[in-house]
């Protein structure tokens, strides 16, 4: 029986905005296909994980104050994480986790919280509450040559700069910055994005892309995933895409 190993970072701290749902969706779509999934939570105080031992690493967004506490913990694993990224372990990073993997985060008071500095972008908070990026988002994403629209919800004050390889092109809502054209950060085996929703709940194609990527790497094959009953997901996508994209581009 095939199996995927997921490392779930700080599930008790990075747990705002329902990001936990991404893990649930992954588990659901794997188990429906008879693929075993082992989810290992890691948080402050637990035994140090070896990131190379996993197929997928996931981390979500959290409250500002708690995020500061864990940044100090995560930085201990910087070299190990870098190695895992280079080895092709898949990283799915949402919101706060997206920011933490960059160079730094500068808060409203101007304090600099150093990031893991694994990717070249950086984030600066803005004081203007009106420019906080809050709202539904639709982006156009290219997954190995296949165009698809990804739907989610953004809620972040930080503006992320210097992203050269964005995750998608904004069709509706905000991107890396207030009214930005580009959203997220994308490498072959890394998706970092501001999209909550949770991200994977309304985007089965994206979820399957990640699953296939992890399985292909682990079992060295070109797997064809068995299709699942996505009636609700498809109805949901149709409803929301109609609703958001029939309006003007910016909400």
């Amino acid at each position: 029986m095939k199996e995927l190993k997921i490392l779930y970072l700080y599930p008790d701290i990075l747990e705002l905005y329902g990001d936990f749902g991404n893990i649930q969706v992954l588990k659901y779509r794997l188990e429906k296909r008879g693929i075993n999934v082992e989810i290992t939570p890691y948080s402050i105080g637990d035994n140090p994980p070896n990131f190379n031992d996993y197929d997928l690493v996931f981390a979500g967004g959290g409250a500002d104050q708690e995020q500061g506490i864990l940044a100090k913990d995560l930085i201990k694993y910087k070299d190990n994480i870098k190695e895992a990224v280079n080895n092709g372990v898949f990283f799915l990073l949402i919101c706060g986790a997206y920011q933490l993997f960059g160079k730094y985060y500068k808060d409203v008071e101007g304090n600099i919280i150093p990031g893991l500095d694994i990717f070249p972008y950086y984030t600066e908070a803005i004081n203007d509450r009106k420019k906080r990026c809050i709202g539904n988002i639709v982006i156009d994403v290219n997954l190995d040559g296949k165009e698809t629209k990804v739907i989610g919800f953004g809620n972040h004050g930080g503006q992320t700069y210097d992203v050269n390889t964005p995750f998608g092109k904004v069709l509706y809502g905000n991107g890396n910055k207030f009214r930005d054209e580009m959203e997220g950060f994308f490498l072959k085996n890394v998706i970092a994005t501001y999209l909550h929703g949770p991200l994977l709940s309304k985007n089965p194609e994206l979820t399957d892309f990640i699953i296939k990527h992890c399985l292909d790497r682990k079992y060295n094959e070109n797997i064809i995933l068995e299709p699942l009953d996505d009636v609700f997901e498809n109805l949901c996508r149709k409803q929301l895409l109609d609703r958001f994209l029939s309006k003007e581009k910016k909400p």
Binding site: Q24, Y28, S201, F232, C236, Q239
Partner: peptide
């Protein structure tokens, strides 16, 4: 539909939603 997906993913039989 969002709430239907949520409930389905938790393991509740989709044919009863």
């Amino acid at each position: 539909y969002d709430i239907a997906i949520r409930i389905k993913t938790s393991g509740f039989d989709a044919s009863k939603i």
